[in-house]
Amino acid sequence: MRAAGRFWGLLLIPPALFSGGLLLLTQIVFLSASFHADEGLGVAGQAFTWENYQQVWRDPEYLQSLGLTLRLAALVVLVTLVMTWPVAYLLSRTSPRIAMVLIAAIIATSFVTLPIKTLGMVILFATDGALMRSLRALGLADAHFRFVGSFFAVAVGYTHLAISFMVTMLFSVFQAIPQRLEEAATIHGATRLRVLWRVVLPLSLPGTVSATLVLFNLLTGAFVSAVLLGGGKILTLSLLIQRSLILFNEYGMAAALAGVLLLLVLLVNIVSVVAVSRLTPAARVIA
């Protein structure tokens, strides 16, 4: 038994090296790059400097972009959470056969690649397309409204991406809560709403928070939807990073922007996890 245990233990090493190593090395490479000034044409200075970070702090364009990125991700996560929480709960409580078919359908939608989905949206919301024409006729859209290039468009694109992702993640969160517990709450006097409040919500909280954070992290780095639907007007941080890299060859600046994003996202995650584990002892038991 002992020897077998050691053997299985050895199997952990390759994936650990692969993911840990790649993560660590790449972070070191770009983080160290962020401490060197750009001298034009992709050449970086030799001296250690905080210059790039100071510039992020000074330049309102960067700060606005940072705010926009976080606001966009937070808004989309919130909307998605509100929309998918009940859906995932109901899916987890229908007959397994129906739930399996519906989950499979959700996963199948991810077979369509993101650019195709997004470009479809551009066509659908084209200014002289049927949809926008009817919206204008009904007085629901302003004559000057252009879908591509609006905050709204990017938010819709992100949400579209987020929903299927969130439903599948939350589905497994709810599946881990035994239905017996809801029956026990019901038989001892709780109404449907009280069962949700006193049993389902607290028990799903740790899982819901981690799903929400995964989505938030993903969205702060989202790129395709921001490019295609933002039309160069909605400048999220990932767009600025790409611009610094490709357009201006300012590797140090790009690395500093990525470093700031990393730091902020890390902070949001830590604060959320600490807050949730303070809130409920369930985090202690289930997590």
Binding site: P178, R180, L181, E183, A184, A185, T186, I187, H188, G189, A190, T191, R198, V199, P202, L203, T280, P281, A282, V285, I286
Partner: peptide, 21 residues
């Protein structure tokens, strides 16, 4: 409805609420 029948029930796996004392 079950919650209005004034029943007490002991389940096979007890079904105690794991997040409550």
């Amino acid at each position: 409805a079950p919650n209005r029948r004034a029943i007490g029930m002991v389940f096979q796996d007890y079904a105690l609420f794991p997040h409550l004392t």
